[in-house]
Write a protein that binds this DNA or RNA. Sequence first.
DNA 1: AATACAATCTGGTATATACCAGTTGACAAC
DNA 2: GTTGTCAACTGGTATATACCAGATTGTATT
Lengths: 235, 235
Amino acid sequence: MPNSQYRYLQRHFSDLIRDNKLKSGTKLPSEREIGEAFKVTRVTVRQALQNLEAEGLIYRQNRRGWFVTPPAVVYDPASHLSFNRYVAEQGSTPHTEKLAQQVEPANAKIAQLMCITEGTPVLFLHRRRYINLRPILIEKMYINLDLLPGLENEDLSQSLSQLLQQKYQREYRDMDLSFKSTALPSHAANDLGISTGQAGLQVERINYTSDKKVLEIDYEFWRHDAVTINIAIRD
Amino acid sequence: MPNSQYRYLQRHFSDLIRDNKLKSGTKLPSEREIGEAFKVTRVTVRQALQNLEAEGLIYRQNRRGWFVTPPAVVYDPASHLSFNRYVAEQGSTPHTEKLAQQVEPANAKIAQLMCITEGTPVLFLHRRRYINLRPILIEKMYINLDLLPGLENEDLSQSLSQLLQQKYQREYRDMDLSFKSTALPSHAANDLGISTGQAGLQVERINYTSDKKVLEIDYEFWRHDAVTINIAIRD
DNA sequence: AATACAATCTGGTATATACCAGTTGACAAC
DNA sequence: GTTGTCAACTGGTATATACCAGATTGTATT
């Protein structure tokens, strides 16, 4: 039933990519060139490309072009491995960039979740994480300084889990996770260099210590095409 | 920085919906009417509507119009509650429709996962699930008949978990979960009555019995705007 | 060799228009 | 009343065109 020119184009590139004739990271021809080659207008080309983007096969860089998406990383929040570790184990190169850091009074929501009084200083940390130089994840974290005094003076572009283990003898254990597949909010889209309205995966995570205190609250914004989440539930 | 007519439109409807001036389920004016009212072309209107769709605020029904999205259901795969139970507990009405059912020989992949020999009969079950009469989830399940003999003769549009418990004294316990945020494959999009290329959430689930045998393998395809997933990880 | 700048290439946004294909509702025929 | 038909309306697909703004590149200048 669904026969149209943009679907033909979509199928064409989809096949090329799946057969590995267009390799990971390759730049596609420009929208105008594709249109000329297939004798369709740019509007039609863009519809095909946007669908391929939704499928996660290609992605765009603003006014630079369209590129073939590299394989997604598999992320197991329960594995207690750091981002750096699991990315490296899958044969890619992780990189973390600190965008902002600030000790600030806890707002009502954070205070309630952390069971502390509103206004208590917490550490806000804003980071961008890369795989093979491609930005794929924005983190905004609120960290309980009562449990981790002096953390604000450490190098916070390093692995946090490693830092917690070595300096504080703390580790991530229990956590509450929430996932939502939706367009990224504009602040996250901007930080990732993608246009507002693009699909993404939002994760909220509350990390607990072994004695059930809230260590940290994370808001994560992932490119939808960059991650698959695996979790084992064991009673 | 991002100032354009379609963003203005997007913001306009986004505000109306968030302020509850356009209520859940309401039909928007037609694309042509919106275009006339705001003095923009239909192409621009559609760009705004498509972004609102990506944000999960509105959804479309083919050639019927655009509607305001109802609230998402919260799904906790580890809660051991059935779909019917958790939907009902959140004040909505669940409904299940069996689309297909068939005893078939296990293919290589299913056989390997179930630790059975290829060709052993398994029960394939294909269902569509609704919330308040809106189709939001397609399930394709492969069920281990060695562990559940005769299941194919039961009414399979009912709650499976209830059936397993009552007739077989079995229940869902351990499971492996995999989530991926991506455009739904065309078969799932068709079953949900949405156009190919729309965003969705794909879930793969392997259910184990208490003695570590594979009871069932599920492939779930959710509307992205219909669900939020919550999981508690406890060591 | 390093720098500055302009031409060119890219995707981003927008107009105007046309025809197609399901859905709906009104009305006529039974 | 029920059924059938048809016109009007909806979103779906597509053409042709235009201009904007950021990114890239080649060239002239220093």
